[in-house]
């Protein structure tokens, strides 16, 4: 396809200069054709299941589409309904931001702080502690065990502990009471959040250039906190940027934990998020146009938050 387009252009263009530009580009592509061939399998699948769907989702969001009939263009109606007429979406939006504002920064700082402390331990203990902190994030759906811990009857581990300590007299319905659902989900989400970025931070700290720290000591760095701010953080900037992307994206995509613990839909939508709202319309009600509008809003929020954070983090350590 690429070939055809370029040949057409060269044939049609009356300007020699333009012809030259296209032929030299073509030569360049031809010379590197092995690289394109190597990239082709990945890129084919990547475009088919990631890039095209993002564009398609934006397109579908301007239509009424129920899968059975062909999509019908309805302009901005899905969006106006979403923001003006959908109370549940407002709850989802509020919950999502609440989750993100708490789990995002807390998990990010926890990832770094624990990596920083663990890094000072002797190698064997360091490897063990890394495993302890990282294991929950790769244990798959073992978070179901929290259901037993937060179980609403006396058999629930937390309830029985609190009753025995006489802090409460009656078991609390942790997963059914609106008051607690958000907090429980946040705790479990934090439990699982020391993932890829945590490893990236540990790795970054281990490969830190020791001579920088020695130079810093000569230049009058007085304590560990100054060392952290003026030397460690700036030289770990690439890992910090990478970690931020991982944590932000994860903290805005809370859904599995909410569904597993609080149910779907949760009591009075207390654990409802943008993603569960999207699932509701996409996989239960089959309002694909509307669900795509939700997906597009989610996409915009994730990209916006990530890009702004990247800007801010580049300023770390001056």
């Amino acid at each position: 396809m690429q070939t055809k387009r370029i040949e057409n252009r060269t044939a049609l263009s009356p300007l020699n200069e333009r012809v030259f530009k296209w032929t030299s580009l073509w030569n360049e592509i031809n010379r590197n054709k092995h690289y394109y061939i190597l990239m082709a399998p990945f890129m084919l699948v990547f475009f088919l299941f990631t890039v095209i769907p993002v564009a398609a989702s934006m397109g579908i969001s301007f239509t009424y589409f129920n899968v059975l009939e062909p999509p019908r263009f309805i302009g901005w109606q899905n969006y106006s309904r979403l923001f003006l007429n959908d109370d549940i979406f407002m709850i989802a939006l509020r919950n999502t931001f609440l989750f993100a504002i708490i789990t995002g920064p807390v998990s990010y700082i926890a990832c770094f702080m624990f990596a920083w402390i663990i890094n000072e331990l002797p190698p064997k203990i360091r490897a063990f502690m890394t495993l302890v902190f990282y294991a929950p994030s790769i244990s798959g759906n073992v978070f179901f065990i929290w259901q037993v811990i937060f179980s609403g009857d006396r058999y629930g581990l937390l309830n029985s502990l609190l009753i025995r300590l006489r802090i409460i007299l009656e078991p609390i319905q942790w997963l059914k009471d609106e008051q607690y659902i958000l907090a429980v989900i946040i705790i479990v989400q934090l439990w699982m959040s020391l993932g890829t970025s945590f490893l990236a931070f540990i790795a970054g700290l281990q490969t830190l250039d020791r001579s920088l720290i020695e130079a810093g000591a000569v230049d009058g760095i007085k304590n560990r906190w100054q060392e952290l701010w003026y030397i460690v953080l700036p030289s770990m900037r690439p890992q910090l940027l990478f970690g931020a992307v991982m944590q932000i994206t994860a903290s805005l995509a809370v859904a599995d934990v909410s569904i597993a613990l609080a149910g779907f839909p949760s009591v009075n939508y207390a654990g409802h998020t943008i993603v569960t709202h999207l699932m509701d319309f996409g996989t239960i009600r089959f309002e694909m146009g509307y669900a795509s509008a939700i997906a597009t809003v989610l996409f915009a929020i994730m990209m916006g938050t990530n890009l702004v954070t990247q800007k801010l983090l580049r300023k770390i350590g001056g």
């Binding site: 580009l25 590197n32 690289y35 299941f49 993002v54 994206t249 990530n306």
Partner: peptide, 26 residues
């Protein structure tokens, strides 16, 4: 090579959203 930078930038950008976004067209 031509397009290499653009392709890598798209890959980095795609780290910034979760797969839920593409679920329906997928």
């Amino acid at each position: 090579f031509p397009g290499s930078k653009a392709i890598f930038n798209i890959v980095v950008l795609s780290l910034m959203f979760s797969p839920h976004v593409t679920a329906i067209p997928n």
